[in-house]
Amino acid sequence: MDLTHLDEKGQARMVDVSEKDVTKREAIAQAIVTMLPNTLTMITEGKHKKGDVLATARIAGIQAAKKTWELIPMCHPLMIAGAKVDIQAISATELRIEVRCKVADRTGIEMEALTAASIAALTIYDMCKAVDKGMTIGEIKLLKKTGGKSGDWNAE
């Protein structure tokens, strides 16, 4: 399979999507933030002195989705139709961030969902690092994508 961001000489390029059809596209991505149990309790009970960690992370994720084209060199600017960031405790030490992004455009929205999940996780880390420097961010991955020429895809 050829890499679409390289031309015939192997030089980086932005893919020309001008001839592609506009289709509805959706992507779902996740990130997992692992922390001490006391840190998670502080977050979920809203007792952090810096404010609502989860609300701030959701806003940061949405903002990141909108700015992905400015952060990732070969990404196209997209008119995002929707971005939802859901954050849930999945154990006594883990938060799962799930991002769903939608667009009607000529190119996919996977990078926007992945960027949103990553930035939401980094925001949680930033707000809580004073109480838990050992937090880790992991399992940043695409869970599902629909639409476009390549069709639908689901993680196993």
Rank of each mutant, 00 (worst) to 15 (best):
D16C: 08
D126A: 06
W69I: 01
I109C: 00
E26Y: 14
K133V: 08
L36M: 15
Q30H: 09
K50L: 13
T39Y: 14
L122E: 07
N154A: 10
K129P: 11
A120Y: 01
T44G: 05
K102H: 06
P73I: 14
D126L: 12
G147P: 03
D86H: 12
K47D: 10
E70S: 10
K49V: 02
N154M: 14
V99L: 03
A65C: 02
H48E: 04
H5I: 14
P37W: 07
K141W: 06
D16A: 15
A55I: 04
V15I: 15
P77T: 07
N154C: 15
A116Q: 01
Q88W: 15
I32N: 01
A64T: 01
E98L: 03
I72M: 00
H76W: 11
L95E: 07
M79T: 10
Y125T: 13
K20R: 04
Q30F: 10
I119N: 03
R106E: 13
V33F: 09
A155G: 02
T34H: 09
K129F: 12
P37Q: 07
V22C: 08
K141A: 12
A29E: 04
E8T: 01
R106I: 03
T23C: 14
R13A: 07
T136E: 06
M127I: 08
K129N: 11
A92E: 02
S91D: 05
V131L: 13
E70F: 02
R96C: 11
L143I: 08
V131Q: 02
E45T: 09
T39S: 13
M35A: 02
T23R: 14
G46Q: 01
I124W: 09
T123F: 04
N38F: 11
M35Y: 08
M79F: 13
K20L: 00
T107N: 04
L54V: 10
M135A: 11
C75N: 08
L143A: 13
V53D: 07
L54N: 01
S18W: 03
Q11G: 05
L143P: 00
K141M: 15
K102M: 12
M111G: 00
S91A: 02
P37T: 00
D86L: 15
I62A: 06
L71A: 13
C101G: 07
K67I: 07
I90V: 11
I90G: 12
M74Y: 02
A120T: 07
L95V: 07
K24M: 15
R96Y: 13
